[in-house]
Simulated scan of single mutants.
Amino acid sequence: MKGTENIKVGISIGDINGIGCEIILKTFKDPRMLDFCTPVIFASAKTISFQRKQLGIQMNYNGVEKASQAVNGKINIVNVWKEVPKVEFGKETEEGGKYALLSLEAAVQALIKKEIDVLVTAPINKHNIQSDKFKFPGHTDFLAKELKGEALMFMVTDELKVGLFTDHVPVKDVSEHLTPELVKNKIDKVYESLKRDFRIARPKIAVLGLNPHSGDNGVIGQEDDKVLRPVISEAFNKGKLVYGPYAADSFFGSENYKKFDAVLATYHDQGLIPFKTLSFGQGVNFTAGLNAVRTSPDHGTAFEIAGKNEADHHSFKEAVFTGISIFRNRKEHEEISANPLKKHSLKVETKKNS
């Protein structure tokens, strides 16, 4: 198995007018990070040098023309472009979107070619990145297309993991998207991710109801009884520890989530509001369901503090560590699958069935 010091973590810089470069530089100015991975930043040496000087961050780096030339033990910068983009901290500009996409495209291609092992993406602005090449509501859908997989947004910490049946979908359209096929698919994705990516032998999953009080037996909507309950029952009868639907209003406040390895929310804010309330700054956005590992911090471009050296980099740092951990877990899972005699090493972390 590849040692942690050789795991190449590719990094897209996000919007150059946001805090992306700042949180990247703050993370890797600590030389101890090079004991865990080899960072490969997709931008240009000139762009990173400008950002570094503006923020007063002292660090050395190694410029390369492609990711395969990255040197272990150094911060590597792949020169994706030669020119020097105009940086206007805190502003939404066409250039900000252009170079965010150039960085992301180069990083994803390196991931596909296996020149990097893990991709960590800094925040993009979902409006100015839109173009003929990027017509998606965010990273997740773009990566699903490029990596030819069925992606699932999975917000994770050590103590809390929240997946979404629907992510960047308007609230008025959620019920239309919430089909039995989608619910089954997402439950299966979370279940397999917990086993493969987090090495939980028998995961226990909670599903939140769509309507207030999970529909109150059909009084407040039919989706919980007609869509969610049958699929949950089917999964349970097949041996998966899946429970619900639970009334979402009290689920987190009562700390019921602590009894489960993961929670599936029916729509974006139902899952992300409690997740970010409980773990903001420490959470990681992991794209499950793909054949490659991608993580990102749990926040956006933060234009309001860009260029002021005020950004907290801990979520980005956690995204790096989480990506490394998932990459290693997948390798171990593959080894166990190839050699069942090693199965005893799999940690059983299922929480109490209560």
Rank of each mutant, 00 (worst) to 15 (best):
N62M: 00
I48K: 01
K114L: 04
G14Y: 06
N62E: 07
G96C: 03
E83M: 04
E92P: 06
C21G: 13
T47I: 11
E83A: 07
M59H: 05
L25A: 13
I23W: 09
K98V: 09
S68E: 15
V87F: 08
Q51C: 13
E22T: 14
G56I: 14
A43N: 00
K29C: 13
M33I: 06
D15L: 06
W81V: 11
Q54N: 12
R32N: 03
L55C: 00
G10V: 09
E22N: 10
R32C: 00
V84Y: 06
N60H: 03
I77D: 12
K114F: 05
Q54G: 00
V9R: 06
G96E: 05
F42T: 09
M59L: 15
A67V: 04
K29P: 02
K29V: 13
P39Y: 06
I57Y: 08
L55R: 01
A100Q: 02
N79H: 02
K113S: 10
E94Y: 11
S12D: 01
T93H: 02
I48R: 00
I41W: 11
K114C: 03
L25I: 15
S68W: 09
V87A: 04
G97C: 10
M33Q: 12
E88P: 03
L34K: 03
A45C: 12
V64T: 02
G90M: 04
G14L: 06
A43G: 02
K114H: 14
V78N: 12
G97E: 10
G63E: 15
I16V: 09
G14K: 07
F28E: 12
Y61T: 01
K114W: 05
Q69S: 07
D30S: 03
T38C: 14
F28V: 14
A110V: 15
Y99W: 15
R52W: 01
N79I: 02
A100H: 00
Q69Y: 10
S68G: 12
P39S: 08
E92V: 15
C21Q: 09
K66Y: 15
L25Q: 09
G73V: 12
N79K: 00
S68C: 14
R32H: 00
I13P: 03
L34P: 05
D30K: 03
K29A: 05
V71E: 13
I57H: 07
K46V: 14
V40Q: 04
G96Q: 08
T93Q: 03
P85D: 07
E22V: 12
G18Q: 05
I19Y: 12
M59R: 05
F28K: 15
R32K: 06
